[in-house]
Design a protein around this nucleic acid. Structure first.
Lengths: 340, 340
DNA sequence: CTGTTAGCGCATTCAA
DNA sequence: TTGAATGCGCTAACAG
């Protein structure tokens, strides 16, 4: 069986001191006579004693734990963001719970409760309900209750009438950069493919696309706006539909790099070469994108800054400081070879 | 400021009962008069009261928390595995800490300590030091100390002389299936590319490759064994080297799908068509692999079973049951179009 | 069925 | 500089 857990009492007894003194050397919050200290430290080492953080948390009313709620860690966007955030949180002494909701609202609720019960000091919410254009009232209400108890930050999303700080990358501006690039390369017939209707990341990008197209006086052809979802398979589907149209665009913006990959594949199956016959632009700059032939021209979200800022804001809230209601992280155009 | 946390004492006072009674309705471990129950439940609802799990953990000496130590959640292998594991853990009432060590031994050590202090009930260790063929003694020793305090399972790795259960997928058999497939397609000149020397996943696969080649009496040409690492870039590098050899193989096994992708790209740059000129076989069956032209023939590790089994074994250990020292999960050949 | 008490491991008063 | 006592929030005896 496992070692019975050794506590400060055991250490104290062995050192012939009181538990309080052991606690003092552990925290360093009070002076201890050097010899006593040395003796205690030796015994701590000997037993490989580590203080029970749970007990401390109970006392301090601070758990030094953060929760992340996200749809699916398997998606490069979320995994990269979590990686950066977690690393920054650790630097500040916080451990991270990762909760995959699988995009289910019930799971989100369950995890919200669990995180509350575990007494996390803060929650980072990504995707899911905060990406819905019209979320049900109960879902908003639930989160409203949560933020009364623990600080929450929203990344790349929002919820109407919810007073929680938002950290988001400038997706709209990213789309505009893409449109500008296409125009600069001489394209005038530009489509927008993929993305899920009702999901903010799609609606936002589409709105920016329409705005930019109209601003520069280019035709906004509804036939070339074909939503579906954000997967590779979706990219294929969307090309099948595009091919049915009277006329093909010469450049297409895709809702993300997955859609772009599916699109490129499917275009080639139909004999279109990318970028010579048609230019394809992505979004997100996933790890594979630079290698996916011919190399996808895309927008990089600044994951490091996005993650770090989210944690920064969250920690500030935890410390009771005032924080920005919304922080926008710029996006960057990555030139590669899928746009000519 | 935040709501002062309400406790069972507050609930008890408001309901004119003792804290113990409130606790009883919370746990359901003892009968409570229906009316009392109703009253208490109402007050709990009213305050949205949730019991402090930290306090419970302190009492039960069980935190219902699990820790995962892994190099990098951004890698599809790890993220998929974590996703499956976490979901299964949750079904059993456990929350999951995810710790990205970035393949640094110091980070692994730090996280090990943190997890111990947080009183996790068990640890899943993936990659990092347990994937080294010859790890330093201190690293083994450290883990030996850890397993004295908390159950640990090792996934797809091991540490000499460490008494911790191992769950691994049958990588060796996977390689053999690949070799068999190549032979069946008429190949006799087969190479093995990518992978990092000194990392078990490479050494293991290479050994299986050599064994199988010799078993069927095929030439084991050392020129066609070119290690590097497990990245896409590595696949490109490795092809550059392969092209320098006197003679090209007609089929290559790659250490994983990333290497295969890089290899396919680079081969095409040199005018080799996959699979008509050369067959390329991968390993891991990542999400992109089916879409990466021409569709990568590869080996799927059964992530769901791998993850679930790891958690199962860990939970059994936590409950003090005897467990298998080693569990092997079979791998599956996925036929696609990169092997002709 | 319900209340009282004690203790999980720790840090912090307050005295000495 | 050190020790004794207290309480963080909860549950499990033990009485009643």
């Amino acid at each position: 069986m496992k070692n019975k857990n050794v506590t400060i009492y055991d250490i104290a007894k062995e050192a012939n001191v009181s538990p309080a003194t052991v606690s003092r050397v552990l925290t360093g919050n009070a002076r201890v006579r050097p010899e006593t200290m040395k003796k205690i430290v030796a015994i701590i080492e000997k037993h490989q004693f580590r203080p029970n953080e749970l007990a401390r948390s109970l006392l301090y009313k601070k758990s030094k734990m953060l929760g992340f709620i996200l749809p699916d860690i398997t998606s490069p966007f979320f995994s990269t963001l979590v990686l950066k955030s977690e690393s920054y949180a650790l630097k500040n002494g916080y451990s991270s719970f990762v909760c995959n909701s699988m995009n289910s609202r019930e799971m989100e609720s369950k995890y919200l409760q669990t995180l509350l019960e575990k007494q996390v000091d803060g929650i980072v919410f990504l995707g899911g309900r905060i990406n819905n254009v019209a979320p049900p009232k109960e879902q908003i209400e639930e989160l409203k209750q949560v933020i009364k108890r623990v600080p929450v930050v929203l990344v790349n999303g929002s919820l109407p009438d919810l007073d929680a700080p938002i950290i988001r990358s400038d997706e709209g501006d990213g789309v505009k950069q893409l449109v500008q690039l296409a125009i600069q390369k001489g394209h005038t017939k530009i489509g927008f493919l993929g993305g899920t209707i009702g999901v903010t990341s799609y609606e936002l990008k589409l709105a920016a696309f329409e705005e930019e197209m109209k601003k520069v006086g280019l035709p906004f052809n509804k036939e070339w706006i074909i939503p579906d979802s954000f997967s590779i398979a979706s990219g294929e589907i969307v090309i099948e539909k595009l091919i049915q149209t009277k006329e093909m665009p010469t450049a297409i913006l895709c809702a993300n790099d997955y859609v772009a990959m599916g699109a490129i594949n499917q275009l080639q199956k139909h004999g279109y070469e990318v970028p010579t016959d048609i230019s394809v632009l992505g979004f997100d700059d996933m790890y594979i994108s630079q290698y996916f032939p011919p190399g996808i021209t895309t927008i990089s979200q600044n994951y490091e800054r996005l993650g770090q800022t989210a944690i920064e804001v969250l920690l500030n809230m935890i410390e009771g400081k005032e924080v920005e209601r919304e922080t926008i992280i710029p996006t960057t155009l990555i030139h590669r070879h899928s746009c000519l």
